[in-house]
Simulated scan of single mutants.
Amino acid sequence: MQNRLVLTATVEREDVLRYTPAGVPVLEMWLRHQSRQTEAGAERDVICEIQSVMVGEACRAWAGRVAGQELTVSGFLCQRSLRNPRLVLHIESAEFVKG
């Protein structure tokens, strides 16, 4: 089964880097995507905001650097927690969009 998402979006908000009780770094951010897509032969404006999280040592390099920046991210979708079914994008890789 596949669960992959690639998205180019602007980081609307970035939380302060935090650590799990086990000492694993976690960076939460909110991504805003805006584009024009073709659906069923018609043009459609697409606007969405998605909560995302980056976990592990790699997120240290991104902390404090991404708010307001445009990124292309890839990762997988998962519910926030066992009790909260809201979808969150778990970012596995990210790069700044050249502009």
Rank of each mutant, 00 (worst) to 15 (best):
33 H>T: 06
24 V>L: 10
98 K>A: 11
53 V>Y: 00
64 G>D: 03
70 E>I: 11
94 A>R: 03
83 R>C: 05
73 V>Q: 01
24 V>N: 12
91 I>Y: 04
88 V>N: 11
73 V>F: 01
38 T>V: 14
98 K>R: 14
24 V>T: 15
65 R>S: 04
52 S>I: 00
19 Y>D: 01
22 A>Q: 15
63 A>C: 05
22 A>E: 14
17 L>S: 01
60 R>E: 14
57 E>L: 07
55 V>Y: 00
17 L>A: 00
66 V>C: 06
54 M>V: 07
3 N>S: 06
34 Q>T: 12
20 T>M: 07
46 V>D: 01
19 Y>N: 00
55 V>D: 01
7 L>D: 03
1 M>W: 13
66 V>D: 01
36 R>C: 04
65 R>H: 09
7 L>P: 07
87 L>V: 14
34 Q>R: 15
51 Q>H: 12
85 P>M: 01
15 D>M: 10
79 Q>E: 13
11 V>M: 05
48 C>A: 15
48 C>S: 10
45 D>C: 02
58 A>C: 05
65 R>P: 04
64 G>Y: 03
14 E>C: 02
52 S>E: 02
36 R>N: 10
68 G>E: 00
22 A>M: 10
7 L>Q: 07
79 Q>D: 12
97 V>F: 05
28 E>A: 13
42 A>L: 08
98 K>V: 04
35 S>E: 06
8 T>S: 13
63 A>Y: 00
97 V>T: 13
14 E>F: 01
19 Y>G: 01
9 A>I: 06
39 E>V: 08
3 N>D: 07
48 C>V: 09
70 E>D: 13
67 A>H: 04
9 A>P: 12
74 S>W: 05
31 L>H: 08
34 Q>F: 09
47 I>D: 07
13 R>Y: 06
69 Q>W: 00
85 P>L: 00
62 W>C: 04
47 I>A: 15
19 Y>C: 02
14 E>S: 04
33 H>A: 09
16 V>M: 08
38 T>S: 14
48 C>T: 09
63 A>P: 04
16 V>F: 05
43 E>F: 05
43 E>W: 12
90 H>P: 02
76 F>V: 03
68 G>V: 00
88 V>A: 02
66 V>P: 03
56 G>C: 01
